[in-house]
Amino acid sequence: DVAEQLTPVLPDGPRDESLQLVSELKDCSCSGAVDVSTVWWEAAGCRELRVVTASESALSLWEPLAPDCWGKVYTWHLREIPVIQIVPLPDTCNLVCVALGELEIGEIRLLLYSSETDSFKHSLVKTGNIKAVVGLKDRRLVSSSRTVQEQQVEMVLLSETGGSKDRQTLMPPEETVTAFAEVEGMREALVGTTAGNSVVVWNLKTGQLLRKMHVGYSYSASICHRAYSDSGLLFVVLSHPHAKESESCGSLAFRVVAFNPSTGRSAGVMFSCLPPGRAGRRGDVWDTAGAAVLTSGAVAVWDLLRGRCTAELPPGPAGRWAL
């Protein structure tokens, strides 16, 4: 419905929009919310988008019952280690991936419904001192983990039944990988950012580390969110959670940087800043839109191609937003 409403404005490009509350999920039984995500779920031949909510000790699956009304289908209890985040698996059906740990991720589990046993269950995919994890299309999960001596970067091919079908080791860079991003339009390419402020590129099929490209010294601690390959260039959306406020821009929220993988050179394409006087926290990117929770508790949304903040949702009476 929302897509249809937006279509008439598309020929002129997106305009300033306000955010509208569509529906609420009320869970009286769980403690504070840790994360929220969506998952495709197929039941009785019908594939629909469902919502997953996470608290520290449980994940709940919600189905739409009627407009503005959601019902809880099932709750997985994970009491031994706290839940840190839900790891989205794009285009994957009937699988929820979750990262658990104390301060850092210590294990990754899959939550699923088993038609064989007609029961909901969870299975362990990976343990270790995990620094970054990303879910890719076609049930692939890539993570970086660290021991005192070395860093391991690994891709796990997940099975429909919650196991791991295959594992591919990727060549690790010297610096710790801080984030991964799938490359739209190139199934076998993966990019990552490192603690040394570089962008690295892998070939997922062979595990080769193809290129390491420095982001530049102006902005430290870059985190990659999305990457797009076009016309021989690699466009990477970066955020800089620790960027200081500058006179020219204010506080930086996202940057789109074009890399030429052949030469390793880069150029800034567009940047998006926080509204004046605001400070930001974690952000995320979907297609050409970026969103971030501000320290005020509001949510801001940007059109990354125009470098414009298009909407801001102030904190509600119940408190701050999470993203």
Partner: peptide, 23 residues
């Protein structure tokens, strides 16, 4: 961004880098 700033662009960069990179 201009092509000169980024150097020569190759549409086949992925295949070319895969052929050059250590296995």
């Amino acid at each position: 961004c201009s092509e000169s700033a980024l150097g020569p662009i190759s549409l086949n960069w992925f295949e070319e880098l895969s052929a050059e990179a250590p296995p």
